[in-house]
């Protein structure tokens, strides 16, 4: 059994061990990512799991990082938007969002990118219904979702062609 001390615990974020210092043990993973580890890609809006803008992968599962107790995520593999592709080289999903015009203000985009990576991992050729369902936990207030769905479909088509 591991008992994180009040001074420091270590999270595994994007393949690296990251020491968390001087943290209150009740902090959410979202707060720790942004305020303790300087990873500003995950966005915080509702802090109650409604908007999806803080979505990350924890041990491969798409979750809202605002609803994960950071000190309880010790030993789990955490992937954030910063970890989906090397810096300066967008992932295919990120590029498709740009190409399809699926980004307006951009606030919801990191969460939607994470949700799209998670969806296409499980279901490489999703139907439109499936895309709408799987992205239903991510709220976008700008685009009306049409171009977001188009972006997801573009990735699915491109990946099929690349096989």
């Amino acid at each position: 059994m591991s008992e994180p001390s009040n001074l420091v615990y270590t999270l595994h974020v994007n393949g690296h061990a990251s020491d968390v210092r001087d943290a209150w043990l009740g902090e959410s993973l979202l707060y720790v990512l942004r305020e303790r580890l300087g990873l500003m890609g995950s966005k915080g809006a509702c802090e109650q799991g409604e908007c999806g803008s803080c979505s990350v992968l924890v041990d491969g599962e798409l979750v809202c990082s605002c609803l994960v107790l950071a000190a309880g995520a010790v030993g789990q593999q955490i992937i954030t938007i910063e970890g989906v592709a090397p810096a300066g080289a967008p992932s295919d999903v990120q590029q498709a969002f740009v190409d399809a015009g699926a980004v307006q203000c951009g606030f919801c985009t990191p969460g939607l990118i994470m949700a799209t990576h998670s969806l296409l991992e499980r279901s490489p050729e999703p139907t439109e219904y499936e895309i709408r369902e799987e992205l239903s936990g991510n709220i976008c207030r700008c685009t009306g979702y049409g171009r977001i769905i188009e972006a997801v479909q573009r990735v699915a088509v491109a990946r099929r062609g690349a096989q």
Binding site: L25, G26, S28, E47, Q48, G49, C64, C66, L67, V68, L69, G72, G75, Q76
Partner: peptide
């Protein structure tokens, strides 16, 4: 006791609840 966190973390984030000790059971 914290399992998925989807109830408790909303209360912790909102400052509606303090927990002196938490036992995480999802592992």
């Amino acid at each position: 006791v914290l399992a998925g966190g989807t109830d408790l973390m909303v209360e912790l984030n909102g400052g509606h609840r303090r927990a002196s000790s938490v036992v995480v059971v999802n592992r």
